[in-house]
Nucleic acid binder design. Structure first.
Length: 569
DNA sequence: AAAAAAC
């Protein structure tokens, strides 16, 4: 591992010309620059639904501290010039009024009892809820100009102490949607004269990976600047410190992964009886079968009668949503855009690679041509991530990094910071990077291994195209991936990308399976050996059906493209 | 449907 990091450190220097296209895009900002300012916030004439332009201004604005300020302007320009009434924008506008909008608009639906009015600006929020001027100036300092859709709807709901299930696409500012109201309603740090604060931790944010918890912690620290909040990124070390009561009582917010918190609960070193705010980020992940038992334990430990709970995600399958609604009290459900759908800003494509051995050559061909770094590559397992990274390095690809949960804490941290500094051109990773991570300006996501669910797909490709930027996502698929191909293809379609017609003609796997069960005798579907030598049609159908009982390896894999005629009938 | 991730 070390050797390969060394290898990856060497090689060509960062080539600025690679970015020239952007630099030009950014700097040739036209007359209508209109630097976002407070004056804009005051005009109060904003539409009820926040459009992408507005969203982009708010979201990419925060990048001005990290680099490339003018992109706020750039995005605005792009949005204004675009008048592509393509299927994606139409989808998103299905509930929109009659005025034919030139820009795609987000559809925002808030359901629940007595839904608080949304707020169109941060100043409006501050006035309505007496938010501290410090929070407001920190927003300003970090370039948050306009609230995004989810912020504009979600923040008032949380500030009015309501429970919330928030569904909003990747990269649309969900983190701020809960951090801001939590900090605003905590009022002041516990250590100061805050009479009704009580003793012990007052707010908890739970996230599925260390990297994401770390990132949320950083965001939280930004908002807290200038005041002595005690915001703790929960780790082994901080857990040990928090075991002392004197320390524990002064903590305001803990940001943690579930098992870390549960470990402290079990050891009796931490009590959550004063927790007033509990946030589950990546809620569907937190409620899946692996994490849910831990989340249950956390929920059970939060015994304060007036606890506020909220869940956030870009995806929330029906089952997870049901569970979420059960744990929430009189919740309000906010959906921005279409559930389980990527932003149309991400141009997606599917690439057929016949089988696993064909993937590496395809990827190397890709890297042999000019490409836009940084690129994030997803594999299905830790060993595959490691070996793919090594292969890329051996084949001369520059600045390759790897990140998966099998690496040490330090290795992971180092990989993330190289990514943050823009030193990684190519990051090979696993599902651990799929959710929540906000690396600035990832230009392209490559699904080297096919994602195992629509949710995984949506989150993975959501690492690009964040905060109003454009992004590109390529997904490799093999014959083995056929059973799940159509579901993903539909996601592409729904978000405005195009899909080869033959893929759309694929029947639903389950349906086909049933059909096949009717035709093929039971014994044959049970015994894979019996199928060898059968005619191609059956083999093909087997592949499409994705039966676990695969045809023996010696059978030549049949490219899916050759099979469409038959299976689509 | 299944791996990854959480300590």
């Amino acid at each position: 591992m070390e050797a390969f990091q060394l290898l990856s450190r060497g090689g060509a220097k960062f080539d600025k010309r690679r970015f020239q296209k952007d630099v030009q895009l950014f700097s040739k900002a036209p007359g209508k620059t209109q630097t976002p300012s407070k004056a804009n916030l005051a005009d109060g004439e904003l539409p009820k639904e926040l459009d992408y332009f507005k969203y982009a201004a708010g979201g990419s604005g925060k990048r001005k501290t990290e680099g490339g300020g003018p992109d706020v302007v750039k995005k605005r320009k792009v949005s204004e010039e675009e008048d592509e009434p393509d299927s994606a924008s139409e989808d998103l506008e299905e509930n929109e009024a009659e005025d034919a909008p030139q820009r795609p608009r987000q559809r925002i639906v808030a359901k629940g009892s007595n839904v608080p009015a949304h707020a169109d600006s941060f100043t409006e929020l501050a006035e309505r809820y007496q938010m501290s001027s410090l929070l407001l100036s920190n927003l300003d300092r970090y370039g948050y100009i306009y609230p995004t859709g989810i912020q504009s709807y979600g923040i008032p709901i949380l500030l009015e102490s309501r429970d919330l299930a928030a569904i909003s696409p990747t990269g649309t500012g969900k983190t701020l949607s809960y951090l801001l109201p939590v900090m605003a309603s905590l009022g002041a740090p516990s250590s100061s004269s805050n009479s009704d604060a009580g003793a012990g931790v007052r707010a908890i944010v739970v996230a599925p990976t260390r990297e994401l918890a770390h990132q949320i912690h950083n965001e939280c620290l930004k908002l807290a600047e200038g005041r002595k909040w005690r915001i703790v990124l929960f780790s082994k070390a901080s857990a040990a410190t928090l075991a002392e009561k004197a320390t524990r009582d002064k903590v305001d917010i803990i940001i943690t992964t579930p098992l870390r918190l549960v470990a402290s609960l079990r050891s009796g070193s931490l009590e959550l009886d004063n927790v007033r705010h509990l946030i589950l980020d990546e809620a569907d992940r937190m409620l899946d079968s692996e994490f849910f038992p831990q989340v249950e334990e956390i929920l059970a430990a939060c015994t304060h009668p007036s606890i506020q709970k909220a869940v956030f995600s870009a995806t929330l399958p029906a089952g997870a949503e049901k569970m979420a609604m059960q744990m929430l009290q009189d919740p309000i459900r906010v959906v921005v855009g279409l559930k389980d759908t990527p932003l149309p800003l991400i141009s997606q494509s599917l690439t057929y690679v016949a089988d696993d051995p064909s993937k590496l050559p395809s990827l190397l061909t890709y890297f042999a041509q000019p490409y836009n770094p940084p690129v994030l590559i997803f594999t299905s397992s830790q060993p595959r991530a490691t070996s793919l990274a090594q292969e890329l390095i051996l084949n001369g690809v520059s600045n390759v990094d790897c990140l998966h949960a099998g690496m040490t804490k330090k290795e992971r941290e180092d990989a993330v910071s190289r990514m943050r500094r823009g030193e990684s051109w190519v990051m090979v990773s696993t599902e651990v990077m799929a959710r929540g991570m906000d690396f600035k300006g990832i230009r392209e996501v490559i699904n080297y291994d096919f994602p195992t669910s629509v949710q995984s797909y949506v989150h993975r490709i959501g690492r690009t195209g964040r905060a109003g930027r454009e992004g590109k996502a390529v997904t490799y698929f093999t014959d083995d991936d056929a059973p799940f191909l159509k579901a993903i293809a539909n996601v592409l379609l729904q978000s405005g990308s195009t899909v080869p017609e033959w893929i759309l003609k694929l029947p639903k796997p389950s349906k086909l399976k049933r059909k096949q069960m009717g035709k093929v005798k039971r014994a044959e579907t049970v015994n894979p050996a019996r199928r060898i030598g059968r005619n191609d049609a059956i083999k093909k159908r087997d592949m499409i059906a994705g039966s676990k009982r695969r045809i023996a390896r010696e059978t030549r894999p049949i490219p899916l493209s050759e099979t469409t005629g038959e299976v689509s009938s």
